[in-house]
Amino acid sequence: MAPVWLHRYAVLLACCTLFLVVAGALVTSHEAGLSVPDWPLSYGKLMPEMEGGIFYEHGHRMIATTVGFLTIILAVWLWRAEPRPWLKKLGWAALGAVIFQGLLGGMTVIFMLPKPVSVSHACLAQLFFSTIVAISWFTSAAWRRGGTLVEDQGAPGLRSLAVAASGSLFLQLALGAATRHKAFGVTPHVLGAVLATGMVLWLIVRILLRHGNHQGLVRPALALLAITFSQVFLGVAAYMSRLATADAPQPMPVMIGFTVVHVAVGALTLATSVIVAIQVFRFVQPEPAVSGARVPVAS
């Protein structure tokens, strides 16, 4: 089957995974994580009555199961059709991650939301989504077209900056998950926002100033800039809406809406930063001698 279909399938799985992240955020925001006390069945059934918190918790499980099966297909498809060994391995790694993620989800239920497990579950969701987005990118026509190599300039190196930006964004997502699961207060997450935004801005400014004509770098960098600013706004909105509805007897739609979108855009932010990092590692070379050469097709 043509590579384009593999790419389209990977994009479909990425969309399903983002939907799964949204469903997971809805579970937490509705405080419905333990509305189904048993696992892997729900109230001893495959399909309980979908009402109240059960709708969100069991719905999350159903979407997760679907994503798990879709990931099996992706891993097998890559194994059979993909010539690049490292991409085959990435497919199996994604499958391993989604299986482990399912076990973490089960543990959150059986052991009643132990904070380390719940936070790990949230963090692995973000990593899994970024992995699927990366696979989508690696199987795309844009990746196969390759591009021009450019020489890195300045210190620290752009590769180091890209890794630091993605790392700080992942740390920030972990702090956000810890805040949501009440491992600690909001202050570390706010400080993390300053750090992550600063790192992202540093990376983007460097790309725009030094490699402003390289579309393979500029486009994902501008996308990361837009998403990061949206995320900062959504973070403020989520926090303000939480404060405004603190005395409500139940989670209120305005708080749930902003928080869930904040979580979803957080996943997009990390995934976009990973794409930027991939592009930087592909096109930006530390040695001056390689400047102007082209990346081999489909490497």
Binding site: D38, P40, L41, F111, P114, V117
Partner: peptide, 22 residues
Amino acid sequence: MRTPSILSTGLCALALVLTGCG
């Protein structure tokens, strides 16, 4: 319905590592 015992035992062992089982 109770969770299958093998699954529960395995998860508990994992949870002991990660969380000290509460």
